[in-house]
Write a protein that binds this DNA or RNA. Structure first.
Lengths: 129, 129
DNA sequence: CAGTATCCTTTCCGATACTG
DNA sequence: CAGTATCGGAAAGGATACTG
């Protein structure tokens, strides 16, 4: 447990440390729609292995972005949900998702989109005053 | 040059492929404020090496997010700037930066901030209605 | 100044087997 | 079902020396 006090040059770096990597944004994106069981996450995120999923979930938990809810029963049931703090990431994640979908469109030009309706009402991309 | 056509499950993944990793967002964050020379980027991003910087810039260029401007002169002068497409990332990057600064505040609680004045007019982190 | 070439370390991630 | 343990490979990144 040698929690080295790291100094960051910028907030961006601090944020990347929390939610960077190949999977964490994907996981959070799933949790935005609500509490999910481990197995649900696994199914929702094709390609991720049990080990990596658990690993990432632990990290997110450690940073108070998600909450782990253990239902003491056999067979085990564990759920994860965004903390209040984690919820502050929602706007960013939504935008990332939106941008990504548009990008797929741009690159593949076809109807690769999985856009939901509530994304169509475009929020202007510049910072609101 | 085997540009394998990759299939993405979601836009999020596609986006992470473009701007994920330890440095790319940092680089883009620098370019938001305008065209920059290689050496300026290097100074602005402590810790990055020449090799990695070039590498990341090439990737960003390949994906049409930044533009490389070569001034044919001795000594060489090269500048990078966001393309029009790259500019569509601005809102996301700004928010990431903002969130990150807030996070540093939350974690260190002190005046760790490197906040510029134009950041002090805090935008609420939840999606604006 | 900008970039390339090597080599090397570290980090991340996948496969698989196993436990309560 | 959720999670752990171990092994091994691939990829990202860092140190350093060198070039036009």
């Amino acid at each position: 447990m040698e929690q080295e006090l790291k100094r960051y040059e910028s907030g961006v770096q601090a944020m990347l440390e929390l939610v960077g990597g190949k999977w964490r944004i994907l996981i959070l994106h799933q949790l935005i729609t609500g509490k999910k069981r481990t197995s649900e996450l696994r199914r929702a995120i094709p390609g991720i292995t049990q080990k990596v999923l658990t690993q990432q979930l632990r990290d997110l938990e450690k940073n108070e972005i998600i909450h782990r809810i253990i239902h003491p029963q056999i067979p085990p049931k564990v759920e994860y949900e965004l903390t209040e703090y984690g919820l502050t990431l929602q706007a960013i994640i939504d935008r990332i998702c939106l941008w990504g979908e548009n990008h797929l469109d741009r690159v593949y030009g076809d109807k690769n989109k999985v856009l939901e309706n509530h994304f169509s009402e475009y929020i202007p991309l510049s910072t609101p005053n």
